[in-house]
Design a binder for these strands. Structure first.
Lengths: 189, 189
DNA sequence: AAATATACTTACTAATAAGTAAGTTTGCAA
DNA sequence: TTGCAAACTTACTTATTAGTAAGTATATTT
């Protein structure tokens, strides 16, 4: 695989996560990489194409991460902690997540990109639901809702928190994330 | 106030809440209203201007609603229920809220629009924090976090849920909102 | 009746966007 | 050394965008 191709994907992802899909252009990428806009089209004929590739890369990354945690024998609490670290890192870097960035632009995305984006959120939600369910069975977590609902509540909080954090100053992001985890603690109930 | 002006604001708000700020154009509005794009510029010289006006209108609407509830003597539980109804209605109409729609585009908005948007989220959060705090004092709610953190958690959930709802099919939005309210119930603890 | 303000339209401009066709350089293989 | 493919550039086109300047019709005021 080409290094330029990878750089385009990386830069594209950053642009989506900071400016948003409709606010970035091939020029933003090409000028940053010191190449011409046609060079981007050489790798990604259309912007839809690039968008879809970026989502696919993110799905792959997520699946690698969860696979890794499972094969390394992380318990459910540890897995959730690691998952939440993705968001604290994004917050530090003043970025949103892919789902939170592309979700709003769903009406101006190609059907292919939307399909991948849906697939991504479903994969995340499924993993989160399963992790919550098996963690509760082991007595690691306590919550009264259905795991699907709880997963949706948690994911919603995390996705939106990255957005709200940019609107509300003095936000204590760490406390926020701690509250999400503490809410699951069996000791607290 | 002109009826055309009001229609522009209403249409603009709908476009922001469905397509997003960067994805809608003056043409979208003018063609819908059967007028020319220059007519929109007559009322709103720039798009930034329109954006700011739309946010201001929403702030006003929110303050009228909360003011009304307070003067009518709604208790905190009733107030929260009414607040959450805004989101169930948005969900039915396949729309997001203003904060969730404009938040993602913060990097491509004018400083004035951003200022109003920040003001709006702060007003909502302040109201929610106060309502949670006084409701807990009266024994209507039970939660262990600081009211500020709890308010942020709830608002995050609601804002993002409207986005995720469009990504995840078969979402049971009612159960989701019920879970948010049930979480506050003193009986459940 | 004349002047003026309101609510537009007509007819543009300048900028930026995605996308393309054809050419160029470079390294490698036959 | 010729041929060819990969990785671009040059030089565009077409479409859409926000925005503007000047004009027009209509109603209201003076």
């Amino acid at each position: 695989m080409s290094i330029t191709r990878e750089k385009i994907i990386e830069l594209g992802e950053n642009l989506i996560r900071t400016k948003g899909y409709n606010a970035f252009s091939y020029q933003d990428i090409s000028s940053e990489l010191g190449i011409k806009n046609a060079a981007i089209h050489y790798y990604f004929p259309s912007k839809e194409n690039l968008g879809t590739s970026i989502v696919k890369t993110n799905i792959q990354r997520f699946e690698e991460m969860t696979g890794n945690m499972q094969s390394r024998g992380f318990d459910e609490w540890h897995q959730l902690e690691t998952f939440i670290k993705i968001y604290t890192k994004s917050h530090r870097e003043q970025k949103r997540c892919i789902v939170g960035s592309l979700g709003p632009d769903i009406n101006s995305l190609s059907t292919q990109t939307v399909a991948e984006l849906k697939r991504m959120s479903e994969i995340i939600l499924k993993w989160l639901t399963d992790t919550l369910a098996s963690g509760r069975q082991k007595g690691l977590f306590a919550f009264s809702e259905e795991p699907e609902i709880k997963a949706l509540l948690m994911l919603s909080s995390l996705v939106a928190s990255l957005q709200l954090a940019r609107l509300i100053d003095n936000i204590e992001y760490k406390s926020f994330c701690n509250a999400i985890l503490a809410d699951l603690s069996p000791a607290g109930k």
